[in-house]
Design a protein around this nucleic acid. Sequence first.
DNA 1: TTGTTACACAGGTCATACCTTTGCTGATTT
DNA 2: AAATCAGCAAAGGTATGACCTGTGTAACAA
Lengths: 252, 252
Amino acid sequence: MAQREASQMSTATEDHADATDGEAAVPALHLRVLDALGEAIVSGELAPGRRLTLEDLQQHYNVSRTLARDTMRVLESMNLVYSRRRVGIVVQDPELWNVFDPKLVRWRLASSRRAEQYSSLTELRIAVEPIAAAGAARRAGATERRQLTALAAELRRLGEAGELEEFLKADIAFHSLLLHSCGNEMFKALDGMVAEVLSSRTKQGLMPFKPRPEALQAHEAVAAAVAAGDAGTAESAMHHILDEVRTAMGLP
Amino acid sequence: MAQREASQMSTATEDHADATDGEAAVPALHLRVLDALGEAIVSGELAPGRRLTLEDLQQHYNVSRTLARDTMRVLESMNLVYSRRRVGIVVQDPELWNVFDPKLVRWRLASSRRAEQYSSLTELRIAVEPIAAAGAARRAGATERRQLTALAAELRRLGEAGELEEFLKADIAFHSLLLHSCGNEMFKALDGMVAEVLSSRTKQGLMPFKPRPEALQAHEAVAAAVAAGDAGTAESAMHHILDEVRTAMGLP
DNA sequence: TTGTTACACAGGTCATACCTTTGCTGATTT
DNA sequence: AAATCAGCAAAGGTATGACCTGTGTAACAA
């Protein structure tokens, strides 16, 4: 019934299409225009205050006014631009952007401003995940507590074996499950962004070849505290995990 | 140059239009349709899985296909719906909504599910504001540090005088300034939501007639720690403020 | 110089038409 | 009877053109 929309933030592991179907699903035209424009704005190529007209868009992207308008409306709803009669479409000041929109985050991660986005996201993780761990300790279901424990054990196994790829997947699963177990739907919505941060860490080689034993220990501690319903311990154990992340990223 | 879009989350104090212009600025048609539909979905009136067609929208709201499509696109970009040929427009599962979109938050606060939204937001505050305070202690500018201290002093004055209205305004200014000083643009974007939570607390009478002395003390402590650049103290002092908020809201 | 008016520019909204995908139905085949 | 396939039609996707309505700007008048 419900389906994830194509424009959502991609998690690290993508659903692959039917193996029989070799063709890449061509994204709808309006999404391509949206992505192109969004990236242009986010990258600074179209600076704040820059004025466009619908006609510009139509010509630049070879689309009809309908699509130009569609795109503009979505961008406007993200507060990346505003439109006024007789003026045109104006790029907004970045201060006003809806920086929690997954599309926007995706564009920023694809831009040259990548590093800033990562540190913002990391600081957000530092803030949210401990509280999420505490929430999970209070409100997670029995199955979730079990799965969390199992994932922590798997993390140790994969970590000690040095299987970074699989470790990453399990790590994402761990943090994602935690966010989903904490009973706060706003925290849930951050799972894609957390996954993005985690996988970038591995891809960029910021990860030690083998995860540090303290990190493995801390994940187990979080899982155990959540399983035991000990919110305070879960929170501080998660804090330990993120302390390591913070130092790894060179944040203060 | 840059202007705040009409559909943004309203802060507690609205800019009033020219005094000479008595008429309320009539919101654009597409915004009215968007709000109506958004509220209908968020309130559960249009349940997840419910199917609509563009024609339904055209007739229900007496608008052209263009506007029906505009609205649909924006809703789709918020992941409230998805649209497929031959099927129509389908309301998404709430799990997939972009719950950080200010419009969505506004709709949820206007719905009967208000309480859930408030507790989610409060938990988010509990997570973010201490880290924001620490960030401000590290990165705020000199002016911001001064203003923060001044606001804390004003909070004490207004609080002891029992001027709840003015106290609320100063309180919002304090927390908003903190979020803006912390150097994380994602935290900045939460200012409207924090303001919303704060004003609702006062409006709903959840606020003691006079703010508790501990709260005033804690605000001053935050300001002082930020002014002194003491991140750890700022963080824990902010934690104290939010502990009080938590108990006031009956959260665990 | 300053205030006013008129114009044209650009989005806002509407109506219509045609294209493309796809769920469904029913006939055909095994 | 079950499985497969073809064709229809429903619904969004895209394009076009027209007209309406604010609103900068510049020409003009005081």
